[in-house]
Amino acid sequence: MKVLYDHQSFSGAKYGGVARYFYDLMQNLKYEQEVDVKLALLFSNNHYLKNGDIKNVIPFRFFLGYAKTNMLFSHINRLNSAFQISRQNFDIFHPTYFKDYFLPFLGKKPFVITHHDVIPEKFSMKYAALDGFDKSQKQKILEKASKIIAVSENTKQDILEIFDIAPDKVEVIYHSTHFSTFVPNPAVKITTPERYLLYVGNRENYKNFDVYVRAIAPILHKQDDLYLLCGGNGKFTAFEENLFAELKISNQILHREVDSDDDLYLLYKNALAFVYPSLYEGFGIPILEAFACNCPVVLSNRSCFPEVGQDAALYFNPNDKEEIAFQVEKIVEDAELRASLIKKGQQRLKDFSPSITASKTLEVYQSVIG
């Protein structure tokens, strides 16, 4: 079987959950399932491709500024993807995002698309169009797809609620994490506070970061050796700095860029707990990353989180600052609870291996091409 993937999630993304998902999927399909995978991509600074052997790409510099340079190389990559699709040298096509440029070139070849979340549709009234695609464009892609992969049961139900799609067209295949088989480099060392809570990734909008910070501020006041460490997604904004100053916790909130998987692994491993206060996620890969790194997990009780975490996490109402503080303080103070959650997290992780994700995806491909 020959499967073609396009450029969309790799053109401008150095890191990111969607790019990581497709990279791990291609890697596993190629080496464990013996599938002939091809990525239609020429130019990229993607970290996963740079350190792997799925596709040799050409890195580029931002000579026109970040946005304009990304747009230029994205257009070049799109032309290359269109050319590769038009050659018809594949059995099934799997676009990595929702641009519909490929439809005129696809002919009668089938395609499968993965729907990671409906965050833009659920939060568009509050935060505008978060991914730049309107509902009608996605509806067209979903209608024409042979199969739709949803990354959780919660996401499947959201898709069926928001879009006009037949339920039997949507297959649920969970995400996984490469950290489940990751072997850290013992030579890599990082410096962190002795006691800290970990936050990872984007801090904007529905991520609920400001409510979380306000909730734990009293805990930080009581425990001056406890820190909140935020990994990745750029330095703190002026708004965030002002918030920390207002709450008088500026000295206990730190930011650290994540330059490698080894860095991220150690951030999880050394933390007292990973706390995920988001109002909504399609899946929540950081939950699995924390499980794999023996890091206790405290989660919002919204969307897919209870489905993914089950009994391996503590939960709180993300709109209730007192409840957030109660659960966070509980995990900080109780070493036996942390040990119990670590053990449960290791057990829960067994349901989310990259091999399972790839083999189930291959079953979907095979069902489409007969």
Results as ranks from 00 to 15, higher is better:
Leu64His: 02
Gln84Ser: 11
Ala166His: 12
Glu121Cys: 05
Asp351Glu: 14
Phe83Lys: 14
Tyr127Ile: 04
Met71Phe: 14
Phe98Ile: 12
Ser359Glu: 04
Gln33Cys: 13
Ser260Thr: 13
Ser278Cys: 08
His94Pro: 00
Leu247Glu: 09
Ser146His: 04
Lys321Gly: 00
Lys122Val: 06
Asn208Gln: 09
Gly132Phe: 13
Gly201Asp: 08
Val332Arg: 02
Asn28Gln: 12
Tyr276Lys: 00
Ala312Met: 05
Gly232Pro: 08
Val275Phe: 00
Ala271Asp: 10
Leu288Glu: 05
Asp134Ile: 12
Leu254Phe: 03
Leu72Trp: 03
Asp168Trp: 02
Leu106Asn: 07
Phe305Ser: 05
Ile148Arg: 01
Cys304Pro: 12
Val151Arg: 03
Lys248Gln: 13
Asn233Met: 14
Leu198Gly: 07
Val364Trp: 01
Thr114Gly: 04
Ala129Asn: 15
Asp53His: 10
Pro120His: 06
Leu341Cys: 06
Val183Thr: 12
Arg256Gln: 12
Lys248Phe: 05
Glu171Pro: 01
Glu257Asn: 14
Ile165Arg: 07
Asn56Thr: 04
Ser180Tyr: 08
Asn56Cys: 08
Pro296Ala: 07
Lys343Leu: 14
His7Gln: 15
Lys207Ser: 04
Ser359Asn: 05
Ile356Trp: 01
Gln366Leu: 05
Ile92Val: 15
Tyr280Gln: 07
Thr192Val: 15
Ile148Pro: 00
Phe98Thr: 12
His175Leu: 15
Leu226Val: 11
Leu254Gly: 01
Gln8Asp: 08
Ile331Leu: 09
Pro167Arg: 00
Val112Leu: 13
Gln33Pro: 02
Glu333Gly: 10
Lys135Asn: 08
His94Leu: 01
Asp261Leu: 12
Val188Asp: 12
Val151Met: 10
Pro59Asp: 07
